[in-house]
Nucleic acid binder design. Structure first.
Length: 422
RNA sequence: GUGGGUGUAGCUCAGUUGGUGGUAGCACCUGGUUGUGGCCCAGGAGGUCGUGGGUUCAAGUCCCAUCACUCACCCCA
């Protein structure tokens, strides 16, 4: 019986992994430009960490987590909680009043897989801890937009404010009143949501619900003075940075910890999975997890979704399997000589390949061609006797005799020096 | 957790009213060139037809079950 990967788990094989590398490299570059530092956390955490941060009543915690029940340990379903745990544990707030951190890695949620949604998926996650400054909100969104733009992905940025513990209860009341009035015309899901998480009614996809909800009270009009000013300042910042965005009063988030600014980078090209990236502010969360009273904001982007978009755009990453030299030994004696020679070449930093199967020269040339080798070093019995080998430039088809002995000739190294790579 | 679609070679797929699994494409190997790549030509290898049952003289094909994949709902990155 064949063993296959688990449902919702995927291998990233050669040919596909290049695109991932490109995305990760671009992300690291952008994050560095914005003065972010990398942090890496373990994948397993105490279950309690996620229950307390994401929220006991959320779908993620209620039914989507991979948990070792007997040990009360869970594979992280998102990065923010782990990152904050590490931040608190290591007293990073003492080392620097404002921390700008990012991490890239796998997350786990036991959902039914579909397009753009897997059980093990990968996120890049960015967090700024220690400042409530609305400029940082704008800066983060600008960074996300810059990253996607640099990758050649077109998205729209939508944002909203969810208010704070001062003003949200008032809005909640107003919304519940509104829902109560239209109870009859809302869908079953919304009836349930109105009890568990009324804000979610706002982003129901059911067309009739949408119509009804058009007239719902807007959180943006229920913000307290401070939240209102903050919201305005974020928008001013976005305009200063020339970031295109639109306000979406219906956008709410599925995690409990968000406050004030929330935003999503949205695409129309991934079917049901519209969000390529999303995040927001969580000013009370660090304290809730037992840390200092510091505000924070962050966002996560889904690597799978970005890669899917790039694949759809056929923006294939450049072939990165070009090698410097293929060492072709003809016959057992020559191969025996070539074996350590290839090793020496690798020591000097050259991308070197050779065949161990004793195949014909023709076959080895084919292999070299497929590997996009710049040069082939042909070592036959004849050459061996004279301490020489033939070096063929695969592009120009020029060949020259080159002296090889136990130590490599300087000629060879000069020709092959990595600096010469075009 | 709920619905729909699809399962044939490593990949993309043909397969007629049930009658021996495909000169199919890509990829792979060998040869055409006794020691020289790409193009071309010839040959080769590669399959429990997702799995288990049933109908039948005979099942890739019809029936039932099951599993997997996939899309959508829910939810989310």
């Amino acid at each position: 019986m064949k063993i296959k990967a688990l449902n919702g788990f995927k291998d990233i094989v050669p040919g596909e992994v290049e695109l991932w590398q490109k995305v990760e490299e671009t992300a690291r570059d952008i994050f560095a430009r914005f003065n972010f530092n990398e942090i890496r956390m373990p994948i397993l955490e105490k279950t309690e960490l996620f229950a307390r941060s994401i929220g006991e009543a959320t779908d993620i915690v209620e039914k989507e987590m991979y948990t070792f029940v007997d040990k009360q340990i869970t594979m992280r379903p998102e990065a923010t909680a782990s990152l904050l745990r590490a931040y608190i544990q290591h007293g990073l707030h003492v080392q620097k009043p404002i921390q700008r951190l990012f991490t890239i890695g796998p997350m786990f949620r036991h959902e039914r897989p579909q397009k753009g949604r897997l059980r093990q998926f990968h996120q890049m996650d960015v967090e700024v801890l220690g400042t409530p400054n609305p400029r940082v909100d704008a800066e983060l969104m600008a960074m996300g937009a810059m990253l996607l733009e640099e990758l050649g992905i077109t998205v729209s940025l939508e944002m909203n404010s969810l208010g704070c513990p001062v003003c949200r209860p008032g809005f909640r009341e107003a919304l519940l009143d509104f829902i109560e009035d239209r109870k009859e015309s809302l869908c079953e899901d919304c009836a349930r949501r109105s009890r568990t998480n009324p804000l979610r009614v706002l982003d129901c996809k059911n067309p009739t619900c949408r119509e009804q909800v058009e007239e719902a009270p807007s959180i943006q009009e229920h913000l307290c003075e401070e939240c209102g000013e903050h919201f305005q300042a974020v928008q001013d910042g976005l305009q200063q940075l020339n970031v295109q965005y639109s306000l979406n009063k219906f956008m709410v988030r599925g995690l409990d910890y968000y406050s004030r600014t929330t935003f999503e980078f949205i695409t129309r090209d991934l079917g049901a999975q519209a969000a390529v990236g999303a995040g927001g502010r969580y000013d009370g969360l660090v304290e809730k997890l037992g840390g200092p009273k510091v505000p924070g904001i962050g966002f996560a982007m889904g690597l799978e979704r970005i890669v899917l978009l790039l694949q759809q755009q056929e923006e294939k990453a450049e072939e990165s399997d070009r090698i410097d030299i293929f060492v072709a030994g003809l016959g057992e004696k020559a191969s025996e000589f070539a074996f350590p020679l290839a090793h020496t070449l690798r020591r000097t930093g050259l991308l070197t390949a050779m065949d161990h199967e004793g195949r014909s020269l023709k076959s080895q040339m084919k292999q070299a061609n497929k590997a996009h080798a710049r040069y082939v070093l042909i070592i036959g019995e004849n050459e061996l006797e004279q301490g020489a080998a033939v070096l063929r430039n695969m592009e120009t088809q020029e060949q020259q005799e080159i002296a090889v002995s136990d130590s490599l000739s300087s000629d060879l190294l000069e020709i092959l020096s990595p600096a010469q790579k075009s």
